[in-house]
Computed example of a mutant assay.
Amino acid sequence: MTSHTNTAAAAGTWKLGDLTVNRVGFGAMRLTGSAAFDLGTPSDRERSIKVLRRAIELGVNHIDTASYYFSSLRSANELINRALAPYPDDLVITTKVWPGRDPSGAWWWATPEQLRGQVEENLRQLGRDHLDVVNLRIPPSRRTGSIAEHFGALAGLREAGLVRHLGISNATPEQLAEAQAVAPVVCVQNPYGVGAPAAEQEFLRACGEQAVAFVPFFAIAGAGREAGASATDSETVLAVARAHGVTPAQVRLAWTLHQGPHVLAIPGTGNPDHLADNVAAGALRLSEDEMARLSALHQDSE
């Protein structure tokens, strides 16, 4: 691969509403420390700022964040503001509301009336007068419940001009349909990666048919989730990685991007070297045989 292909544009682009993004983006969760929501281990501020600026240099123009991404001394949104403002014209920042954390780190869940305050918190931290995309992050306890009231409140903020586009996260196909009846949905952000169950595969395909972006999180981590990449990469993943001279994480990312042109990756890292690897994965092309072998891991996990 030549150096100029190792940019976030190598995997192509997709539109979130009227906003065009490169399919390889960046997730800000790990910028604040070693673990997702650890108040005890703040990250190195200058290194986090360096990673963000390097991501932009590599062509990343889609950053996923949240006001609840913070550790004892670091806030992802404030790091983004410090590193990147004044923001590039083509940069799309996606954030999430419904969950929140108080200053001690304790979680709380917003009522529909409190969503405006959460949106305004993101605006303050990012130094923006509007948010590009806001995802309604659905709590695990509501996986089968209605989201119409909360999504309707977000739709009102969109009408008011505080938000340009809406998405949903941790959602079911039924909740997507419910949300679509209220206001346009530009993306679904769900856990997904090698070994995902058949139902998630089907949901990914259905999103593509509706021209809704599917944005997997934990695409690299797999079963490790917030803890990070698991040490138990299957022999299939390792073999494909060896064949291409790349890391298992790059294989997982490439496989995910191969699932459809509407699939966007948002791998997160606080490490400049891992950042370059993640972006380069967008240029990795897997053979039909390799794709089939990796996809067969679904059956093993069900």
Rank of each mutant, 00 (worst) to 15 (best):
L253D: 00
V194C: 03
V24N: 06
Q125P: 00
E174T: 08
G245P: 03
L275N: 08
L294I: 03
P184G: 07
L284G: 09
A229C: 01
G195F: 03
H258M: 12
E178P: 09
P191M: 10
D132V: 02
N122V: 01
A231R: 11
V119L: 05
N22V: 09
N6C: 14
N170C: 02
V163A: 05
G17E: 05
D64R: 14
A171K: 01
Q114L: 13
Q125N: 14
Q250L: 05
S146L: 07
A227D: 09
L115A: 02
P191W: 00
H244F: 02
A265G: 13
S3H: 12
Y69A: 12
R142H: 05
S34I: 08
R53A: 12
N271E: 04
D90Y: 05
V119C: 12
K15I: 00
Q299C: 07
I168G: 03
A199V: 13
R30N: 14
R137C: 13
E121Q: 15
G195M: 08
H4S: 15
D89E: 15
S71V: 09
L166S: 02
V92M: 10
G40Y: 12
T2I: 07
V237A: 01
T41D: 14
L58V: 03
I266W: 00
T5R: 15
S146H: 06
A283F: 03
G260C: 08
G100H: 01
T65G: 06
A8N: 08
R252N: 00
H274G: 00
Q175R: 01
T32F: 13
G270P: 02
A66I: 02
L58K: 11
A241W: 12
A231K: 00
F218D: 04
I63R: 05
R225A: 12
A83G: 13
H262F: 01
T256W: 03
Q114D: 11
A83W: 05
V185Y: 03
H165F: 11
A223S: 12
Y69Q: 10
Q125I: 00
A219L: 07
G193L: 09
A199N: 10
A160N: 04
R143T: 07
R47Y: 00
